[in-house]
Computed example of a mutant assay.
Amino acid sequence: MEVDEGEDVLLETRDAFDGQMRPGVTEADFAGMDAGVIHPLTGPVAVKGAAPGDLLEVEFVDIQPQPHAFSVIFPGFGFLRDVFTEPFMVHWNIADGFATSDQIPGVRVPGASFMGVSGVAPSHAQLSEWTRREAELASRGGVALPPDAGGAVPIAGVGATHGIRTLPPRENGGNFDVKQLSTGSKLLLPVAVEGALFSTGDAHFAQGDGEVCVTAVEMGATCTVRFRVLKGEAERQNIRWPRFSREDYYIAPEWAAPRRFVATMGMPVREDGVNEGENLTLACRNAILNMIDLLQERGFSRDQAYVICSVAVDLKVSNVVDVPNFVVSAFLPEDLFVG
């Protein structure tokens, strides 16, 4: 569709697995699923007047969840994919502002709905450059998935073989999984093509900062957005990367830290005692592993603990100056638990 600035635009979105994780699905069904259809997006929406060099402001006016959601541990994916190698399925019921599940009894996750993927269309030059740099990363042994027509919509045309994957975010936006981009927030995206061509999807009912098992409380949702075009601002200020803001942040102090919490720390020291100084990735890993240990002490299974970390535990960089041991903290809200 094509819209004017200031119009409310209502977008019906599908869940991140395109409806494959419906109620009744179990771990036994995972093998038959199509991984190529991850991240179905609703769009593109053309915004009248938007042109290359502009900055597009996207205000998230409302995000209404569907009643069913899910979280999964999917073998081969996630931050601790070398540790968690078996599938695990969690179905959530969303009602009265909370998500609850028979698979993780005693836990009630408060809702803070947001869209995991939001972005504008890249230019042909950006497509070429990003494909080149990700191929170069892969050639150095890094993880970057090349273009693949599998699961692409539409199947025909150049997009299926030359389009970029939706898994990583880039300069045009994409799969941020930033939970603070909830109702009332504003996302700023540099425009690269006429009309900007905005798309969104991958709605989450709740998520911990980090989304460590690779899924949050995943759902379909109805998202209402409103656009404003800041003429020439991306070019004038040389803004290449997305930004976001929220004016009423002060009413949500739990984003800084929950009112009641317990936290674990991680530092860059391996289990064999080797100190990998200033390694934030290892510090993150250790913070989560320590939190999983804490949750197991409280009676949760290792799989349950990993999912709880993904949907409700916030990873925060506590310091990057106290060499060699940078600190990452994992915050667990105590109000999560009922009974």
Rank of each mutant, 00 (worst) to 15 (best):
V158S: 12
G116I: 01
K316A: 13
G36Q: 08
G163I: 12
V321G: 15
R298L: 02
D54K: 06
R270P: 09
F114P: 00
F70N: 12
V338I: 08
A257V: 13
R140G: 00
E233Y: 06
A196E: 11
D8S: 05
D272Y: 10
I73G: 09
G208I: 03
E134F: 07
M267Q: 02
G220I: 08
S318A: 15
V274G: 12
G157V: 01
G220M: 09
V158P: 10
L80K: 02
E2R: 13
P268K: 02
E194A: 08
P52A: 06
C213N: 11
V307Q: 03
I288L: 13
H204K: 00
E59S: 14
A121P: 13
L295P: 03
V262I: 02
V61H: 13
E129I: 14
H91V: 11
Y306C: 01
F300W: 03
R132H: 06
P324S: 08
S329M: 13
F198V: 00
V328K: 06
R240E: 09
G141L: 01
W255C: 10
V323L: 10
Q304Y: 03
D148P: 11
K48V: 12
A35H: 08
E233L: 12
L181T: 04
E171A: 14
A46N: 01
W255K: 12
L127T: 11
G163C: 09
N279L: 02
E129A: 14
E271K: 09
L282E: 02
A144K: 03
V327E: 05
N172C: 07
R132Q: 12
R22C: 05
A257L: 09
D15C: 03
F88C: 13
V320W: 00
V269W: 04
E5T: 09
G150H: 12
Q66C: 10
P65I: 07
D62I: 07
A216I: 01
G6D: 11
T281N: 10
A221R: 01
V262N: 04
A206W: 00
N238G: 12
A206Y: 02
F60I: 07
K231Q: 10
A252P: 03
F114K: 00
G299M: 03
S245F: 08
R81C: 06
T183N: 10
D293A: 15
G106I: 00
T85G: 06
E271S: 08
E297I: 15
L167D: 12
L189M: 01
V47R: 08
S301I: 10
T100P: 02
A31Q: 02
